[in-house]
C-alpha cells in the first residue's frame, strides 16, 4: 500500500470509508476483460456477492469483469491459479479473507499469507445459530445446556471445518468450556441450512446470508447471531446476539471481498483504490444486497481492510491449531496464538 489514506470512521454499526487516494499514480486503463476467479461453486455466498460487485468495477474500468468459478479443495485450487497468473492486474480473486490468509496454516497452499494480497472488502457476514422450526430448542440457553450435557449427540451441519460455520461452532465450543459436538459436513452453506430445515441435522452455524430465506419462510428458527448486536431481517423478530448468553465470547465478523495479488503494477492498485472508495463504498446495489441477506455492508480497502480482517484471520488460524488440524503453526504466518495477536510486521 503506497498511497496514504485518510480514514474517517463514521460512528454507528456500518463503517463508512471516505478514502481518498492521492491521485498521483497514473490511471490504469485495462484493454481486455479481467478474470475474477471465484474459487467456490457458482451460486454460493462468495459467488453471489462477487456477482453483485463485479458489474460496478466493470462499469468503472470500462472492460468486462468475467467471474470464473474454479471450485475445489476449499478454494485452494482457484487461489493457486491466481497466484500463478502473471501479475499484470488482469487476474483477481474473490473469497472470504480469512481463507486466503490461512491457506498456509491449513496446509492447502504453501507459503502464502494475508500480505500476498491487496484487499478490497465489501461485506461482513455473521454466523447465525439456527435449529429446525419444530426443534425441541426454543432459545439458545436450552441449546447450550444440551451441548454441555449431551455433547456428541447434537449434530451440527456446516460446510466443513474451515468454513465459516465450522469456525463458528469451534469458537462457540471454545467460549463455553469446550463442549463436544458432532459436526456433519455438507457441500456448502446452503445445503447445510437445508439439511437442518429438513430435520436431518439438529443445528447449523452457517452464515446468515445462507439461511435468510429459510428463516423468513419459517423453516428455520434462528436462536442467536454471533455478534454483539441483534440481527434484523425483515419479516421476522430480531435475532438476539450471542453475548446475551456468553458475554465474553470472542467475536470476529467474516469479511468477504475481492483480492488482487501483490506484485501488480502500482497504477492498478491506485485505480482500484479509487474505484473502491468512490463507487463501491456508495453502491446501492451492494448495500441492498447486504441488508436483504443479513450481511453488514462494510466496504474498505488497503491498510484499513487489513486491520479489519485480522481478528477473523487470527481466530480461524488459532482455532484450527486447537483442533489439531493445522499443518503449519500459525506463527509461520506471523500469528501468536498465546496472545492472539500478530507477532511480525
Amino acid at each position: 500500500m503506497k498511497q496514504s489514506l485518510r480514514l474517517v470512521l463514521a460512528s454507528g454499526t456500518a463503517l463508512l470509508t471516505l478514502g481518498t487516494s492521492m491521485a498521483f499514480a497514473q490511471e490504469w486503463k485495462p484493454d481486455r476483460p479481467i478474470n475474477l476467479i471465484v474459487p467456490w461453486g457458482a451460486g454460493g455466498s462468495t459467488d453471489q456477492v462477487t456477482r453483485v460487485t463485479a458489474p460496478i468495477l466493470a462499469e468503472a474500468l470500462g472492460v468486462d469483469v468475467v467471474v470464473v468459478n474454479q471450485p475445489g479443495a476449499s478454494g485452494a485450487i482457484g487461489t493457486q491459479e491466481v497466484l500463478n497468473a502473471p501479475r499484470d492486474g488482469y487476474t483477481w480473486t474473490a473469497n472470504a479473507i480469512a481463507n486466503n490468509a490461512t491457506y498456509h496454516v491449513s496446509g492447502l497452499l504453501a507459503d502464502t499469507d494475508i500480505d500476498d494480497w491487496h484487499i478490497y472488502l465489501s461485506v461482513a457476514n455473521v454466523p447465525v445459530v439456527s435449529v429446525p422450526a419444530d426443534s425441541e430448542f426454543t432459545d439458545f440457553g436450552q441449546l447450550l445446556e444440551a451441548f454441555k450435557t449431551r455433547g456428541n449427540e447434537i449434530t451440527v451441519a456446516t460446510a466443513g471445518v474451515t468454513s465459516s460455520g465450522g469456525t463458528a461452532i469451534a469458537a462457540l465450543s471454545g467460549a463455553a468450556d469446550g463442549f463436544d459436538y458432532n459436526m456433519i459436513t455438507y457441500d456448502g452453506g446452503g445445503p447445510a441450512a437445508i439439511a437442518v430445515a429438513s430435520g436431518e441435522a439438529m443445528v447449523t452455524t452457517q452464515l446468515a446470508v445462507e439461511q435468510t430465506e429459510l428463516i423468513r419462510g419459517g423453516r428455520l428458527k434462528a436462536l442467536a447471531v454471533l455478534s454483539d448486536q441483534p440481527l434484523t431481517l425483515d419479516g421476522v423478530d430480531p435475532i438476539p446476539p450471542i453475548t446475551n448468553w456468553i458475554p465474553d465470547m470472542e467475536l470476529a465478523p467474516d469479511y468477504f471481498g475481492i483480492f488482487v495479488p501483490v506484485g501488480v503494477p502500482d497504477e492498478v492498485v491506485a485505480t482500484l483504490d479509487k474505484i473502491w472508495g468512490e463507487k463501491v463504498t456508495t453502491s446501492d446495489a451492494v448495500k441492498t444486497y447486504a441488508e436483504t441477506f443479513g450481511a453488514v455492508f462494510a466496504p474498505s480497502f488497503g491498510a484499513e481492510a487489513r486491520a479489519l480482517a485480522m481478528p477473523v484471520v487470527i481466530l480461524e488460524a488459532c482455532s484450527s491449531l486447537e483442533r489439531g488440524e493445522a499443518v503449519n503453526d500459525p506463527s509461520t504466518i506471523g500469528i501468536d496464538c498465546e496472545t492472539r495477536t500478530e507477532t511480525a510486521q
Binding site: 457458482a42 456477482r51 419459517g218
Partner: peptide
C-alpha cells in the same frame, strides 16, 4: 433450493435482481 447446477446460478441471478425465491 437449487434442483440442478444451472438452477444454483439462476438463484444467484435472481438475488442480484432483487427477486427472492424461497418459501415466501
Amino acid at each position: 433450493l437449487p434442483g440442478s447446477a444451472s438452477a444454483a446460478v439462476l438463484i444467484a441471478a435472481m438475488y442480484i435482481h432483487g427477486i427472492r425465491p424461497g418459501p415466501l
